[in-house]
Design a binder for these strands. Structure first.
Lengths: 237, 237
DNA sequence: GTTAAATTTCTATAATTTTTCAGAATAAAA
DNA sequence: TTTTATTCTGAAAAATTATAGAAATTTAAC
């Protein structure tokens, strides 16, 4: 869930923004003044900031400048909130480094749409090309197409099954604990049982192994976890 | 069994938390005020702390800040307990250093689940294993793959056997007492017999030695303990 | 909404690992 | 050589762990 910070001195705006964004699956934290915001920023960097242009004390321009100076925060996308549409000219004109702007009052549909657009752009930039197709013996797994084939024949896997297998195949030979797998495949907000991993391993085996009770591809390492068997068998540093 | 400290001024909450956590195989110690808790902390560090946000005298925020200042306690995961859901925003937003938060009243299923998740994450982070592959003569041990090979041939070891051998091979030539080995390989909370080490050494020898009654790799140092033979021959205390 | 699929939880069972223990063997000391 | 302490051995009990078969729950699709 992306985290968005909203900085505005008007409580109505804060409330409205919170409502509109949380309804769209975003996590929102609001601040009524710049000081508070900057302080919070030291600890957690949000995925996007909504920043009011005109505020008492520290105004949006000053805050934005500070953001851009700090390496830790300089790449966080900022959407400026302006009261009148002629102010927005300045925002763009001065080119102070905002990524977008919205004029107040904004629509409850417009706001989340703009934020989503910004987040989309950001996530695209931040994801370098990974290895997408992994081949190991008879098995080929294709990250982008989400396809697994065994000797040319396609094997259908569910989302979890696919992610789990991909994780294992990315590091052949390496043993992963169930905890690690839960963290990496299920992501941090999984609060369930560790045994869940076992069950999914079983499902994958039923689909990819010739003899599911004599697994060849996925190896159980008792007391530790699971590993995708390494073709070469050799150990590498 | 992981140890969890619960700090809350309401006895109901303490009781509920204790019940929910002990049912899930955790050891629980409760405190009704911060002073008491901080004192206990000096002696024993729990694996996780449940901390009430609002308490008379010392409140959760203050306590958390103290925890984070002390090197001994700064890495203990803390889950904040908050009464209202809008308070939780502050907890995340200000990122005062809590690892998670739960709003009261919490479900008896949710609480242990969250704690488990935290413990899972913690155990993963705290293992910055350095050397992963150790080679000594004919033997090669690979930490990540959990594999041991002797002249290229794989040797299957159980979890304990592997951990024990790895410990010894990490420090070739150095003699370890049984107590030390129990501490490091079996972890702190082992209250069993010292002879257990002997038995495991025996199992390892049966698997890695050419002639198990004339051990070459693992050397017995009478009255002291065991050592993995150093290539150079010398053994050091 | 209803249905189907996917995911998770639960329980029993089988298999393996770990620990214990008593007597035998071994090495060092008196 | 005898004594004494320590380690080794073999076997079995105890504890742990993985698997399978469902059932229950959640999620997605229609």
């Amino acid at each position: 869930m992306p985290l968005v910070y909203v900085v505005d001195d008007e409580s109505n705006i804060r409330r409205l923004a919170r409502l509109a964004l949380t309804d769209n699956g975003m996590q929102v934290q609001t601040f009524s003044d710049g000081e508070e915001f900057l302080q919070a920023l030291q600890y957690t960097q949000p995925d996007c900031v909504l920043l009011d242009w005109m505020m008492p004390q520290l105004d949006g321009l000053q805050i934005l400048r500070m953001l851009r100076q700090n390496p830790k925060t300089q790449s966080i996308p900022v959407i400026m909130l302006t009261a009148k549409s002629d102010e927005m000219d300045k925002v763009i004109g001065l080119e102070i480094g905002a990524d977008d702007y919205i004029t107040k009052p904004f629509g409850v549909k417009e706001l989340p749409a703009r934020v989503r657009a910004i987040l989309r752009r950001k996530s695209r930039v931040e994801q370098p090309e990974e290895i997408e197709v992994i081949e190991n013996g008879d098995l080929i797994i294709d990250q982008k197409r989400r396809k697994v084939t065994k000797r040319g024949e396609e094997i259908e896997l569910t989302t979890r099954e696919f992610d789990l297998l991909f994780m294992l195949m990315q590091h052949p030979g390496q043993v992963f604990s169930r905890d690690t797998l839960l963290d990496r495949v299920w992501k941090t907000n999984y609060y369930g049982d560790t045994r869940t991993v076992d069950v999914h391993i079983r499902y994958i085996r039923q689909k990819i192994e010739d003899d599911s009770s004599n697994p060849v591809y996925i190896e159980t390492v008792r007391g530790v976890g699971y590993a995708f068997r390494d073709d070469k068998g050799a150990t590498t540093a």
